[in-house]
């Protein structure tokens, strides 16, 4: 495999020409589907995902409690249950491998997103109802879980479900492979597939502008001393992502006012132009 780390040390540029702390182009749209309560489309580089949120609605018939992937916050606190489905399109990656619904990796992502939302959304406002989040992966080029979390946040905002703050995510890696123990390794931000396959990386999801980590997933071997550096870069990346997502939401808001979809009287005192 061609190691991009060999060239990185020469010019401090990654294979796609980015520097260590550059995000890839993040492009997102909000309210893409008219039929859904909330929807979004998000690109992080070549990773493209779509998200559709239905609800809060009455639980659909046949939707049994506790089925896999629809894991929910049970307990005596009555609140909306959250169901997350992730569909990975067969054409999304190079090897065109079909991933079934029972793929453990996908189920784990579903549970992660579901639990991150459950702690963030004010579900207690909607007792006995269900919020269904459907995610479709159209193209994969690294940072998949991060893209899914970001798309979900946008779609949930579009659906108008109250939440404490944005949950934004991105990946952070380290330039040295796990075998080497050199201290000169630089942290990297927002990895693509090629980098993910060669370098240790982790996915961080944070709440709003704080340093609070909601999601942290690492699947590769890395020295524990390097965790701090990667985490700091990841958290910083999440803040950048948050600013971008916030811009998209505000832009959509401005557009809605201009089109007259929101009446002046409904507008909050907050100026959207800031």
């Amino acid at each position: 495999m061609p190691l991009d780390t060999s060239t990185y040390s020469l010019a401090l540029l990654r294979i796609d020409g980015r520097r260590w702390n550059d995000l890839r182009r993040l492009h997102a749209q909000i309210h893409t589907q008219d039929a859904a309560d909330g929807s979004s489309y998000l690109e992080m580089g070549h990773t493209k995902v779509m998200c559709v949120v239905t609800g809060p609605a009455e639980p659909q018939a046949g939707q049994k409690k506790g089925t896999v992937g629809s894991a929910q916050a049970t307990g005596q606190k009555e609140g909306a249950s959250i169901v997350v489905n992730v569909v990975v399109a067969g054409f999304s990656s190079v090897d065109r491998k079909r991933r079934g619904r029972n793929d453990r990796r996908i189920q784990e992502m579903e549970i992660t997103i579901q639990k991150a939302l459950a702690a963030n959304l004010h579900t207690h406002l909607f007792p006995h109802s269900t919020i269904t989040v459907s995610l479709h992966v159209l193209s994969q080029d690294g940072s998949l879980l991060a893209a899914l979390i970001n798309a979900t946040t946008l779609a949930v905002i579009d659906a108008g479900i109250p939440m404490t703050d944005y949950i934004t995510a991105c990946t952070a890696g380290s330039t040295s492979s796990y075998a080497a123990g050199d201290d000169a390794a630089d942290p990297l931000l927002d990895l693509n597939t090629q980098e993910e396959q060669e370098l240790p990386y982790l996915t961080v999801g944070t709440l709003g502008d704080s340093d609070k980590v909601a999601v942290l997933v690492c699947e590769s071997r890395v020295q524990v001393s390097r965790l701090e550096g990667m985490l700091v870069v990841g958290v910083d990346g999440c803040k950048q992502v948050r600013r971008l997502l916030d811009g998209i939401v505000k832009q959509k808001g401005r557009k809605m006012i201009k089109e007259g979809a929101v009446r002046r009287s409904d507008m909050m005192a907050v100026s959207l132009d800031d």
Partner: peptide, 21 residues
Amino acid sequence: HGEICQISKLGGKPVEATLII
């Protein structure tokens, strides 16, 4: 040897990054 093989914080309440370190 101090090599992390895996970390998983799958959702749940957000906690401070310093606490995780």
